[in-house]
Design a protein around this nucleic acid. Structure first.
Lengths: 187, 187
DNA sequence: ATGATTTTTTGATACAGATCAAAAATTATT
DNA sequence: AATAATTTTTGATCTGTATCAAAAAATCAT
């Protein structure tokens, strides 16, 4: 719980009232490696704050899994458009490792937004950094070789890239497993 | 002005007070085609809401311009990370057409955030749709041919793609001008 | 532990799109 | 309107990465 409240406090000052409302609404859960936390055919009703572990957002293209991104400790995960707009979307979420999370139901989040304006600010600020990450990613995807993409990936995900299977990284980068394997091989 | 207030009202209910505070703080400006609205060497202090025209966010890679995205009527433009975090970033903003905007200074926006919680909500919601767009773009950039990228671009930017020079579209898509020219040529 | 899956590596070949070069067309400037 | 500058098109060639195939290695399940 400490980790979660500390996360909020990096963006806003947490009143005791808000702290306890968050604590009371959040649920501690553990998922085993390989577990499907969210299915593309459903509407995403929960957001997960990772305490320990590694989760993945992915979708299917031509029957094959394409990893959209990876989330580790101290980050929120959900199916963004599905969670925000309460409609279905293409993304699945699964666990790359055994993972423990604090999960928050969308209705509880709506309650927090409606009663604590600072939560709106928190969401604005944290979404801002999300936008920043996406921008950097889009930039690094164009006019770069497969090797440059991989190098950039390892820099950006320095502390987790070795925890993710090669095939998942390849699809994240938009290259084939074979190519990534060859890149890793030489030098 | 109507267009701007109407834009806000799609996300939040505008009180008369907030409406007039926005109106008083916004400045109407016109820029000629080719004008540089923001320079990468400076900190972005203004956000521009386009009334009429077309603006572009771009950066330089190996001395060549790479278009990051295009913004047209009823959209806000700024250098995202520079504006949000008040630091320098790689992006320039210029005008593809003669363009009229309502410009808002970052300090005025901060004022609005501090005095009107609903503005925080507006920002959260509009950033949410931004995230959605970026996600779709990242998805459509991987494992797609140059032709598929262009087709997707024309669908997404249906009403403006014919107003943007070929070379700018090519760099936006991460393909060369020559390739895009050939794609347009056949069929 | 042992066999079965799954993942990663290695090899051979093919092709989409890059690069280099230059002509044609369009747009801007005097 | 004429000239200059820029943008787009066309052509020829080259290359990085995909694809197809199969072996090797790692991981999982009984």
């Amino acid at each position: 719980m400490t980790a979660l409240l500390h996360h909020f406090s990096q963006y806003i000052t947490l009143s005791d009232d808000l702290s306890s409302e968050i604590s009371n609404r959040v649920k501690h859960q553990t998922f085993k490696k390989g577990h499907l936390l969210h299915d593309a055919n459903k509407i995403c009703t929960h957001s997960y704050f990772i305490q320990q572990g590694l989760l993945r957002l992915y979708f299917l293209k031509d029957g094959k899994e394409v990893s959209e991104y990876f989330c580790c400790e101290k980050e929120w995960v959900n199916s963004p458009r599905s969670f925000m707009q309460q409609k279905t979307d293409i993304y699945y979420i699964d666990a790359i490792e055994d993972t423990t999370v604090f999960s928050l139901h969308v209705q509880d989040l709506v309650f927090l937004f409606n009663h604590f304006p600072e939560m709106e600010r928190y969401a604005r600020l944290s979404m801002g950094s999300m936008v920043g990450h996406f921008l950097e990613r889009i930039t690094s995807m164009r006019f770069t070789t497969a090797r440059e993409k991989y190098t950039h990936f390892c820099e950006t995900y320095h502390d987790i890239y070795h925890r993710i299977p090669l095939g998942m990284i390849a699809s994240y980068l938009g290259i084939t497993q074979e190519t990534l394997s060859r890149i890793r091989a030489d030098k």
